[in-house]
């Protein structure tokens, strides 16, 4: 147990149990060793590690050992610290495999680009004494978009008429934010509905997690566009409209008998995107946007602007 950490705790965090005080880390290379009670010191500032972050998907918690939830001792603010982890892995999207990389440098560059733009998470990058990149991110109080949608206890039509117009308006803002990134030659890299964080206080949509990178041949932004299409289908359908999901929500097999392969996602073949077939009050213009992400399409969006120019007029078609 380090006396240094005890001293810092006494000064800045007296309620922290002394018996859990760990070590001060100025070199973050071995991030697996850094855990609860340790202090990361960068740029002369001290961050008490409270726990490793976890990603929750399908009810399973997946620990992210290179991401630490911390308390900034000097200010008492909650922070997320991301340490260097050069991970390469194959991402399977439907039948397509994509080689993905985790790039701390990319995330740092984007943090610089979006500084002060509250459509994105905010943070600064420092370097530890071994020149490892350490990203110190502001903590966003709120919930991910999928949880927000999930928590709306309404049937689809009521949801669509009462809540969806505002959700779509905010989603358009989120698309514009991605367009801003693209216009600066950057891609988000991991556009998912749980990477839009809905801030509790302001209800603003904010993008998080920019450290994924991948090499695409002719469409460098295509995966981002596909991600936006996936979120649009999710918010329009109030969930992933798989056949199983729809049967659970009262549709019969006869109701779904008219669906064809072409009505489902070009990549995730089990997700329905031609939603107007089951929810006929969805405006055709909005549904046509979704069809660009269907197996039946021969026309793909190349840019966020193309999506936006189709999406913005849909706002006027909504409402009770």
């Amino acid at each position: 147990m380090s006396q240094d950490v005890r001293d810092l705790v006494k000064q800045y965090y007296p309620s922290f149990p002394i018996r859990h005080c760990g070590k001060i880390y100025r070199d973050t290379t071995e991030f697996m060793d850094i855990s609860y009670g340790d202090v990361i010191c960068v740029n002369g500032l001290h961050y008490m590690v409270l726990r490793d972050e976890v990603e929750r998907r399908f009810g399973i918690e997946d620990p992210k050992f290179w991401v630490k939830r911390c308390k900034h001792l000097e200010t008492g603010e909650r922070k997320i610290i991301k340490l260097v982890f050069y991970e390469k892995f194959s991402l399977k999207l439907g039948e397509v495999k994509i080689l993905c990389h985790r790039s701390p440098g990319k995330e740092s560059r984007i943090l610089d680009l979006v500084r002060g733009d509250m459509r994105f998470m905010q943070g600064v990058s420092y370097y530890d004494e071994k020149n490892n990149n350490v990203r110190v991110l502001d903590f966003i109080r709120g919930k991910s978009l999928d949880i927000v949608i999930h928590n709306i206890e309404e049937d689809h039509e009521s949801y669509f008429r009462k809540y969806f117009p505002e959700i779509l308006e905010k989603f358009i803002g989120a698309c514009e934010a991605i367009g801003f990134m693209h216009s600066h030659g950057e891609k988000h890299g991991d556009i998912r509905r749980d990477h839009i964080w809905v801030e509790s206080e302001t209800h603003k949509y904010r993008w998080i997690d920019f450290d994924y990178s991948f090499d695409f041949y002719e469409n460098p932004f295509a995966l981002d566009l596909f991600g936006l299409g996936g979120i649009l289908a999710f918010i329009t359908g109030k969930g992933d409209c798989t056949v199983g999901y729809l049967l659970e929500r009262g549709f019969t097999k006869e109701d779904l008998a008219g669906l064809t392969e072409d009505d489902f996602s070009i990549i995730f073949h089990h997700r329905l995107v031609n939603l107007r077939k089951i929810y006929p009050y969805i405006p055709e213009k909005l549904n046509n946007i979704l069809l660009h992400f269907s197996r039946g399409t021969d026309v793909f969006y190349d840019t966020v602007d193309e999506i936006l120019s189709d999406l913005r007029p849909c706002l006027d078609l909504l409402g009770s």
């Binding site: 999207l93 295509a222 990549i267």
Partner: peptide, 9 residues
């Protein structure tokens, strides 16, 4: 395939 063309261009 169409999927690959969609994603990779």
């Amino acid at each position: 395939s169409k999927e690959v063309e969609f994603l990779f261009g």
